[in-house]
C-alpha cells in the first residue's frame, strides 16, 4: 500500500498541481488568462500544435539533440572517468580540466559556441554535452577509484587482462555511480539544449517557447515548457528503468 502511494506520488502531485493551476487561473488570482492561460487552454493549444505537425517536429528536433549530447557525454565521461579512477597519470592530467570545467557556468560559453559552431544543431548539442559530461566524468571517476582493491586483485589473479579488469570488473562495479552521474547529466543535456534553443535558434522546443513569447501566443509558450518537462520526465524514467534492469544484483536496486 505504502509502495503504491509512493509510486503514485508524482502522479498525485501532478493532479494537485494542475488542479491548483486551474483554480488559480479561473479565479483570476494570477492576472488575466492571457498572461497565464489555464491548463485547459494550454491543452487545447497543444492539440492544435500537434495536429499542425509543429509540436511533433519540435519534439523530434529537441529529442534528437538531447540524445546526441547525452550519448556523447556518456561515452566521453565514462572513458575519462574510468581513466581518472584507475590511472594516476590520467588522473593527474584530467583532474584539473574536470575541476575547471565542472563549476564553470557553461552557459556563458554559448555565444562563443555559436560563433564557433554556427546557429544550427551543433552549438546546441555542444552546450548540452558541456552541461552533461562533467557530472558523468566526476561520478565515474569517484566510483572507479572506490572499486574494492580485492575485487580487481581477484580478477588479476584469475589471469584477467588489463582491459578485462577495466571493462568487466571496474565498469560494472562503478555502475551505480555511473548511473547516478548519468541522471544528473541527462537533465544537464536537456537544459543545455533547451536553453540553447531559446537563446539562438530557428527550431526545436526552446525556439517554440521564445516564438510564443514574441508572437504573444502565450499558450504556445506554456505548451513548450510542459513538453520539455514531459520529455525530461520520460527520459529520466527510462534511465531509472534501465538502472533497475542493470542492477538487479544490488540488495536494494531502487535506492540512491
Amino acid at each position: 500500500m505504502m509502495r503504491l502511494i509512493s509510486r503514485a506520488g508524482p502522479l498525485l502531485a501532478l493532479a494537485v498541481l494542475i488542479g491548483a493551476w486551474h483554480i488559480a487561473v479561473s479565479r483570476g488570482w494570477l492576472g488575466n488568462p492571457f498572461v497565464l492561460p489555464g491548463p485547459g487552454a494550454v491543452a487545447r493549444r497543444a492539440g492544435d500544435l500537434w495536429s499542425d505537425e509543429s509540436l511533433p517536429r519540435d519534439l523530434r528536433t529537441t529529442l534528437g539533440r538531447v540524445l546526441a549530447a547525452f550519448a556523447l557525454a556518456l561515452a566521453a565521461g565514462t572513458i575519462a572517468g574510468l581513466a581518472m579512477g584507475r590511472s594516476t597519470t590520467a588522473r593527474a592530467a584530467l583532474r584539473p580540466i574536470v575541476g575547471l570545467g565542472f563549476p564553470a557556468p557553461k552557459i556563458a560559453m554559448f555565444p562563443a559556441l555559436v560563433i564557433l559552431l554556427g546557429l544550427g544543431t551543433a552549438s546546441k548539442v555542444a552546450l548540452g554535452f558541456a552541461e552533461a559530461v562533467f557530472p558523468i566524468a566526476a561520478a565515474v571517476a569517484a566510483a572507479a577509484s572506490r572499486v574494492p582493491e580485492r575485487l580487481t586483485w581477484s580478477a588479476e589473479s584469475m589471469g584477467a587482462s588489463r582491459s578485462a579488469v577495466a571493462f568487466r570488473v571496474v565498469l560494472p562495479s562503478a555502475l551505480p555511480g555511473l548511473l547516478a552521474g548519468a541522471r544528473v547529466g541527462l537533465i544537464g543535456a536537456i537544459i543545455g539544449v533547451y536553453v540553447g534553443e531559446m537563446v539562438v535558434s530557428s527550431d526545436g522546443l526552446g525556439h517554440a517557447m521564445v516564438a510564443g513569447w514574441r508572437q504573444l501566443d502565450t499558450a504556445q509558450l506554456y505548451v513548450s515548457v510542459v513538453a520539455v518537462s514531459v520529455l525530461g520526465f520520460v527520459l529520466d524514467g527510462l534511465l531509472l528503468l534501465a538502472r533497475r534492469r542493470l542492477m538487479r544484483w544490488a540488495p536494494e536496486n531502487a535506492s540512491g
Partner: peptide, 13 residues
C-alpha cells in the same frame, strides 16, 4: 596462486 580474501571479493553483479 589462487587467493581467498577475508572480504570474499565476489563480483556482486
Amino acid at each position: 596462486r589462487g587467493i581467498v580474501f577475508q572480504e570474499f571479493a565476489l563480483f556482486p553483479w
